[in-house]
Design a protein around this nucleic acid. Structure first.
Length: 544
RNA sequence: GUUCCGGUAGCUCAGGGGAUAGAGCAAUGGCCUUCUAAGCCAUCGGUCGGGGGUUCGAAUCCCUCCCGGAACGCCA
């Protein structure tokens, strides 16, 4: 079935041509929040008021008169300042129902966009374990990846592993110092070293594997490699428990090994975008809108982090992606212009989209908890998952847009577990399953061999079907605007309508036919609810 | 000082330039002999930070001021 909205747009365009002989670029169709304003509404008459030198309500009346409505609507009203409200013929609701039952979880899938997106998120340094601050990026990236795929984009989920810079050496020295400590030996702890408990754990692992060997010989390479490997393993395990996975873990170190970093430096030089000053190599990022030029090779000959980052993004482009999306924390926003500038030295148009994620303020005992890996005092993602649960946290993050400055009150999050809105949605799913279980166990026979619906003429049914019917265009819009939180809003709306339906209508009707129709409706709701929950990484339980 | 976010109900937050600004939590009052009460129904709650402007129409766009967060390194 062609989306109703598409059909409606064509009708309106046709009416405009007939009534006024004009065409417009876009017809805005909305699904009014207030159902008294119909199933669909358009403001087209108001937007044309100026162009047609006429008042919106008259224009609306002319459009209405010219509409060849094909029997799609029960009624078309002109309301308010000039809205045209469309009240769908009820049989079209049943089209939605049939459509969902046929397509199941592929209902709402966008058409193949033929666009391959590389989506990079989290990319936490392997110098500690994930804390609450990382959780938001992980939840956002994963949800967005799922949403984009649903909408018809091909998506590669990528994690950039910073295993090549100074901080890794800092990490290795930190572990080394802890290792010496385990043997009661003195070794100065790095000034800016990592003090998390996991650093001590790794030192213990090193002691198990190598004994006291590195007290006598230089083990810094081993400390570095083993530490990164151990921490990365931990990151993956925590992310996995959070339902967040990646297709590619890309090593920064490999960029050095393949010569990609040097190659990028030379390419920038060759293009004439670099100059030397005070012994350092500067990149002329101001030529592309940055506020000042940036150093890429320091006067001591080492690289700043910008150069490998440019090399990395070039490498991503060379893998054939049509678009790159990075999700970065707000603390890195100032970095964006220089990276964009550098990449535009290589590409005609801007290919990198950067989504900035505002930082989460974590409160405990009424006080802000500062996250710092170096201090080692953190609230870890792992603890949070254990105490609050992955679903509740995922739902919490998925409710908020990227640029919301969020307060996460841990006491509240933990204490109010049962009042978390995630359960409202999950409960709706479990309820549906339980009705089926009851039907199966207690001999309420039903059939799914139904193509017409005669017992579903109820306002609450229409509310449910209207909500379900909006799913495909919601997916499109949410994906296009990268706003996965709209999915969460949809989930809540759908659950709300399901609960209302459930509370007022007996599903296991005495009449087999009526019972079957209602069960099919429930099944359709369940399919879409589960699919939407899946998009934000939340489970759909069979029982609660 | 500059740049980027944000300021909407007691709290946490939604609000594709449109209709009477909405949810959750909190508060109040009803609803379990029948499919899960983690639910339903109802009520309470707002000078959309202030002031200008654009528009038929502004929480939304523009300007300006105030408040909060973040960033302004040859750190990552």
């Amino acid at each position: 079935m062609k989306h109703i909205e598409e059909r409606l747009k064509r009708l309106i365009l046709g009416a405009l041509k007939d009534a006024y002989g004009i065409s417009v670029d876009a017809v805005h169709i909305e699904t009014p929040a207030d159902k008294r304003h119909g199933d669909y509404a358009t403001n087209i008459a108001m937007t044309l008021a100026k162009r047609l030198q006429s008042n919106p309500r008259d224009i609306a009346a002319n459009i209405k008169a010219a509409l060849a409505d094909e029997g799609m609507f029960d009624a078309i009203d002109i309301a308010g300042p000039g809205f045209i409200n469309f009240y769908l013929d009820k049989t079209l609701y049943y089209d939605t129902l049939r459509d969902i039952l046929k397509k199941r979880e592929s209902f709402g899938d966008g058409e193949d966009k033929g666009v391959h997106i590389n989506l990079e998120y989290v990319s936490a340094n392997p110098t500690g374990i994930l804390h609450v601050g990382h959780a938001r990026g992980a939840a956002a990236g994963d949800s967005l990846a799922r949403l984009l795929r649903k909408a018809g984009y091909k998506v590669t989920r990528e994690f950039y592993v910073n295993d090549g810079g100074n901080q890794i050496m800092n990490l290795a020295r930190s572990v080394e110092a802890r290792y010496f400590e385990l043997f009661g030996e003195e070794k100065p702890f790095p000034e800016d070293g990592y003090r998390g408990g996991e650093i001590i754990d790794i030192a213990k692992t090193m002691r198990e594997r190598y004994g006291d060997r590195f007290l006598h010989e230089d083990g810094i390479d081993s400390f570095r490699e083993e530490s990164v490997a151990e921490l990365l393993k931990g990151l993956k395990r925590d992310l996995d428990a959070f339902g967040v996975t990646f297709d590619v873990f890309y090593s920064e170190k490999s960029l050095y090994e393949t010569g990609a970093v040097e190659e990028t430096r030379e390419a920038l030089k060759a293009k004439g975008y670099t100059y030397e000053k005070e012994g350092a190599l500067f990149l002329r990022t101001t030529a592309f809108g940055d506020e000042k030029d940036r150093v890429i090779v320091k006067s001591d000959g080492t690289y700043t982090y910008l150069l490998p980052d440019i090399a990395y993004h070039r490498e991503k482009l060379s893998r054939g992606f049509d678009a790159l999306i990075d999700i970065l924390g707000a603390d890195h926003h100032g970095y964006v212009p220089r990276l964009q500038a550098a990449l535009e030295m290589f590409t005609e148009e801007r290919r990198l989209e950067v989504l900035i994620l505002q930082l989460v303020k974590v409160l405990q005992n009424g006080e802000e908890v500062k996250m710092s890996k170096r201090s080692g005092r953190t609230i870890t993602l792992r603890d949070l998952i254990e105490e609050v649960g992955s679903d509740a946290i995922r739902y919490f993050f998925a409710r908020h847009s990227l640029n919301t400055h969020m307060d996460l009150d841990l006491d509240l999050a933990i204490k109010q577990t049962n009042e978390n809105p995630v359960y409202y949605a999950q409960y709706a799913h479990a309820r549906i399953r339980s009705v089926f279980e009851k039907a199966d166990n207690e001999g309420y026979a039903y059939t799914d061999d139904i193509d017409t619906f005669e017992h579903l003429d109820d306002e609450r049914v229409h509310d449910l079907l209207a909500a379900l019917g909006a799913y495909p265009s919601l997916i499109e819009h949410a994906a296009a605007t990268r706003s996965f939180h709209r999915i969460t809003q949809f989930i809540h709306r759908l659950a709300q309508k399901l609960h209302a339906f459930y509370s007022h209508i007996v599903i296991l009707d005495e009449n087999v036919r009526a019972r079957s129709e209602k069960l099919l409706l429930l099944e359709a709701v369940r399919i879409v609810l589960k699919d939407a929950l899946n998009l934000i990484g939340v489970s759909a339980p069979e029982k609660m």
